[in-house]
Design a protein around this nucleic acid. Structure first.
Lengths: 116, 116
DNA sequence: TTTAATATTTGACTATATTCGAAATATCGG
DNA sequence: CCGATATTTCGAATATAGTCAAATATTAAA
């Protein structure tokens, strides 16, 4: 992955609404969701949602397909993994840092204590 | 992790120079690098670098400490892992999506066990 | 205390992103 | 074809980010 691709992808999710859309799609799975459903759930005007969906799509994070009158968006998991890998690449110069640096895989809402 | 914290962190790395700085620090390890060294390697004017370092720091992705005349910056690996976990959280609704979704099949990070 | 090294803050300028209503486009069912 | 539904494109207003030279702080050494 090139730096500018990573920047595009990160920029795409670096926004309140787009991050919400993206996480919704990640949670949804390959089945995806139609634009209208996303707009309804997040209470966004359709034109605003399109703007954000296009950014996610252009960044390669989501895919688009038509189903009748609807347009279905879905997360591209391969892209997600490439991005995460790029961010954490060469952690600690490759030294034995696994416990400290390895990114968590699937997190089942465990007790992560965080004092405010 | 809250949505706005994630947005701050993503926004911090969603920039060519900041991403380069961040990856350099991730690669460097807990030892970190002085601001001047980072500026020299990336050929950035000191004032511009400070601008970007502050964003990374304010977003919680890097830490800052003084060493003599220098100010050392280092990646915060716990924050990195929280961010990655947030992005990939509840992948596919928790269904059996491991081959498609699981980022770098690695067990969740525990505690830092690294000799400095 | 003076000087040099290191890093940050300030300030002024330029450029880009976000928002959303209204109009346009594409699809379906009759 | 026509009306209804789903989504996108356009356009204009508003807001925020990025750049870097010069001035300022902080520390160390002579």
């Amino acid at each position: 992955m090139k730096a500018d691709e990573a920047v595009s992808a990160l920029d795409a999710v670096a926004h309140e609404h787009r991050l919400a859309v993206y996480r919704m799609l990640v949670k949804r799975g390959p089945q995806g969701l139609p634009a209208g459903e996303i707009a309804a759930r997040l209470e966004l005007p359709p034109s605003s949602l399109t703007f954000h969906l296009q950014q996610l799509r252009h960044a390669g994070l989501v895919t688009q397909r038509r189903l009748g009158r609807q347009i279905i968006y879905a997360a591209d998991y391969a892209a997600m993994n490439r991005l995460v890998a790029y961010l954490t690449e060469n952690c600690c110069g490759g030294a034995a840092c696994t416990p400290a640096c390895a990114p968590a895989a699937v997190k089942p809402a465990r007790h992560q204590r965080r004092s405010a």
